[in-house]
Write a protein that binds this DNA or RNA. Structure first.
Length: 818
DNA sequence: GGCTCCCGGGG
DNA sequence: GTGTACGGGAGCC
């Protein structure tokens, strides 16, 4: 008699056992125990769409391909009525024995001239399983079968039937956060192959631990001493095995902690078999590095923050410190990490504070995970992919995964991913973007900002913008033409009789979100606001997706139509604002900035209300806020317009800075300092004279060599061996000289240099800081190439000349504003 | 004006 | 592995 169990799937994979693909679903039962449910009843397949009147089926069934002594063959085929971009097609569902046969078979038929296309041959087998079985990870699922005996860290249940049971979801997955500290002398680059891990910390529910392999006196109960790095790595495994987390969370752990741990374990030939099936921690080096443990979801919170949440907050860098302060209001512990290695070598009695620092980072990762998990979980529930995947996906992938999940409900076959040629073609195509009302560069006071809520999604829905609805023969001459202004482009339309696949889906997302917002007005719920946010995120990503060259449902006509209608609607607000007597100073895509001047905040709010009364159902203009001070600058020196480059001071006193590209580490500290200081003086103190004098002072100090050397040191890392460079930049020139001196200089080394005076190329004037005596730097270089570019756009709008800055005649030309 | 190289995060 | 996913700025060539 088969047994029934219920569980929350967390992660899944597949293995080949006895020549069959077996899905392994890892999860937690209702009784809160970890489990692995296996299912060998799912066949790999893909679709073939034959050309009209061609008999393809028989030929398909005869395929046999030999690769590396393995035979790939089609096991059976089915003819099936499907839709492709809204059109009815007769497709063949082609089954194979193993998942890996799918791409092989597709490869052998791709040149056949009797087929229209092959489709859905590149959907991962585990994802195909979730889609076809309609199983959503983290959501209560029922399996029918029996427990079997199999080598595994958790009980294994062999299922004959697996199906979604209810909408209940795993409330509290078990989370363990971790972080490592490594031996890393000051100024030296991080080198996993050379330098050991010296500390490792974990933070979980009622659990904190720091493991280190140098002993010192401490009363901290969570510190555990071991005798070597190899023992520390063993402890890493043991802690995970005993804690039994569903989720192992880190910050930048995909690309730092995990690869580091992997490299160190390999050095000692330690098996990192922490997978629930005893498989090893896998670090995969692709374009981005990802680290994967079978059965345990490894989350890299950095990736989620950067890829998905990024746009929502206003920070200059995605460091753990910034993100933690922004999201959970906590900072990292202040510690000078340059001291860690010397202390480790010479003063181990001082290691305790580094242990606390190490634990605190894990604690931050843990709380960040708690904070972000509702957002990720909601995306899991909406899109239907495991957490692991959601964590690492960008917007386009989220949209595409959602469409792939929805396609069967509409009986749609997914289009192929574009291949090389198509991508090249698509990349060359351009279209007109959003409308930008170019501001007159300058300083403004009392700026009221409005924006359309979900402008593009509501356009896609209300204008039925969909690749399959384009230029239908049924509505020719009847449907409204897309309002593209470009005369050379042919006008086109979208069907008004049928609703497209994408508009249907997006409308569903918008209305679901609206319902949630209604509930949220009544009472707060973190869960619902996470869902609301996820729905918004997803809906907002469709437009970009339609114009993304690598998208399956790519359609430049659709993308072009969205921006065309967008321009139409924003221009409408602008003209109405002007008619109402407002001074429109700036507008971009879906937002309008008004300088209030003689009008009041109340006038602005009333204006928005009035606009909203006239807007069709889904569309809404929002009052974003009032900014007492703002500066709008031109994009490049001398250029008139200024797209997306402004800084404003909010009523709450925070600076909102847009478009001033981050001055990064390969800039000198003096350039960073000056940019930040100038914006602050102008917006907070409202004193351009003071800002001017400040820069003038800095320029003077540079010329008089009063700015200390450490403010002009530029850091650049060598990315490859010195001999491998085609172009010799300043840092490469330095590296070559160092090498000639017999120093060990290779890829990864951090080069610090100072540019000195001379007429040669910059690379010939770049010197090591220690080879330049105090004041030996080239003041002109730092003024012209560092300080001035950092503030040029700002002073641009203030209209000062170079004489005003004390950088007068007879000097090298600096651009007309100085 | 193209092409090449670097940055991010982490210690 | 039912494969190939950044995007923008500076300096050399």
């Amino acid at each position: 008699m088969p047994e029934k169990i219920r569980f929350f799937p967390v992660e899944l994979t597949y293995r080949i056992e006895n020549d069959r693909a077996v899905i392994h679903i890892f999860g937690r039962t209702e009784k809160n125990e970890q489990i692995c449910v296996i299912d060998d009843n799912f066949e790999p397949y893909f679709y073939v769409v034959p050309k009209k009147g061609k008999d393809v089926q028989e030929k398909l069934e005869k395929i046999r391909v030999e690769r590396e002594k393995e035979i790939s063959a089609v096991t059976r085929t089915e003819t099936i009525q499907k839709k492709f971009l809204g059109r009815d097609v007769e497709a063949i569902k082609v089954y194979t024995r193993l998942p890996r046969d799918v791409p092989i078979i597709r490869e052998t038929i791709k040149e056949w001239d009797i087929i229209e296309s092959a489709n859905e041959y590149d959907i991962q087998f585990r994802i195909r399983y979730l889609i076809d079985k309609n199983i959503t990870p983290l959501t209560l699922t029922e399996a029918e079968g029996d427990f079997v005996s199999q080598r595994s860290r958790v009980p294994v249940f062999k299922a004959v039937n697996v199906k979604q049971y209810s909408d209940d979801s795993l409330e509290k997955p078990r989370v363990l956060a971790f972080d490592i500290e490594t031996y890393s002398p000051a100024g030296k680059v991080i080198a996993p192959d050379k330098n050991p891990i010296i500390m490792l910390s974990f933070y979980g529910e009622n659990f904190e631990k720091v493991i280190t392999w140098k002993r010192f006196k401490t009363s901290l109960p969570y510190i555990e001493f071991v005798d070597s790095e190899a023992e520390l790595l063993d402890a890493f495994k043991n802690v995970i095995n005993h804690y039994k987390p569903d989720i192992l969370a880190g910050y930048f752990s995909d690309e730092f902690d995990m690869p580091y741990i992997r490299t160190r374990a390999d050095k000692y030939k330690i098996k990192l078999d922490i997978g629930l099936d005893y498989s090893e921690l896998k670090v995969k080096h692709g374009k981005a590095v990802v680290s994967d443990i079978t059965g345990i979801t490894h989350l890299d919170l950095f990736k989620f923050v950067v890829k998905t949440m990024g746009g929502t907050f206003d920070i200059e860098a995605y460091s753990l410190n910034n993100i933690a302060s922004e999201l959970i209001g906590e900072k990292k512990m202040e510690v000078n990490l340059d001291e860690l290695s010397p202390v480790w070598d010479k003063n181990p009695e001082q290691l305790e504070k580094f242990c606390r620092y190490n634990l605190h980072d894990s604690a931050l990762a843990f709380r960040l995970c708690e904070k972000l998990l509702p957002n990720m979980t909601e995306l899991v529930k909406i899109i239907g992919l495991p957490l692991y995947d959601i964590n690492r996906m960008g917007f386009s992938q989220l949209v595409e995964s959602y469409l792939l999940k929805q396609a069967p409900n509409f009986n749609e076959i997914a289009p192929e991913k574009p291949h090389n040629e198509a991508i090249k073609q698509r990349r060359m195509q351009t279209y007109k973007g959003a409308f930008v009302f170019e501001p007159k560069p300058g300083l403004y006071r009392d700026i009221a900002v409005f924006d359309y809520r979900s402008l593009y999604p509501s356009i896609i829905s209300s204008h039925n913008i969909d690749p399959g609805m384009l230029n239908c023969s049924c509505c020719k001459g009847e449907a409204k033409l897309t309002p593209i202004e470009d005369e050379e482009k042919e006008k086109y339309w979208f069907c008004i009789k049928r609703k497209g696949f994408i508009p249907t889906i997006i409308e569903d997302l918008i209305t679901r979100r609206m319902r949630i917002k209604e509930i949220l007005k009544e009472k707060k719920s973190p869960l619902l606001s996470a869902r609301e946010y996820s729905l918004k995120l997803l809906a907002n990503s469709f437009y970009g997706y339609l114009g993304f060259f690598a998208a399956r449902w790519y359609s430049i006509e659709c993308a072009r139509a969205v921006t065309a209608w967008g321009r139409h609607y924003i221009q409408d607000v602008i003209s109405k604002a002007q008619k109402a007597g407002f001074n429109v100073i700036y507008s971009d895509t879906d937002s309008v900035f008004l300088a209030l001047e003689k009008k009041t905040k109340k006038d602005a709010e009333q204006f928005v209300e009035k606009i909203n009364l006239e807007l069709p159902g889904l569309m809404e203009l929002e009052y974003e806020g009032l900014y007492p001070n703002g500066i709008f600058v031109s994009a490049k020196a001398g250029e008139a317009g200024a797209k997306k480059k402004y800084a404003m001071l909010s009523e709450e006193g925070t600076l909102k800075i847009r478009g001033f590209e981050m001055v990064r580490r390969n800039w000198s500290p003096i350039a960073k300092d000056v940019q930040e200081k100038v914006l602050n003086i102008i917006l907070r103190e409202n004193n351009k004279e003071k800002a001017l004098n400040y820069v003038r002072e800095v320029i003077k100090d540079l010329k008089e060599k009063k700015i200390p050397m450490d403010k002009v040191v530029i850091h650049t890392q060598l990315q490859k061996e010195t001999g491998d460079y085609a172009a010799i930049g300043p840092h490469v020139a330095i590296a070559k000289k160092l090498k000639e001196k017999g120093l060990e200089i290779g890829a990864g080394f951090m080069i610090k240099y100072v540019v000195t005076k001379g007429k040669e190329k910059i690379r010939d004037r770049a010197k090591l800081p220690e080879d330049v005596k105090e004041g030996g730097y080239d003041a002109d270089y730092y003024i012209e190439n560092q300080v001035i570019p950092a503030v040029e756009r700002i002073f641009n709008v203030l209209g000062y000349t170079k004489e005003d800055l004390g950088w007068g005649e007879g000097q090298k030309k600096l651009g007309k504003f100085f």
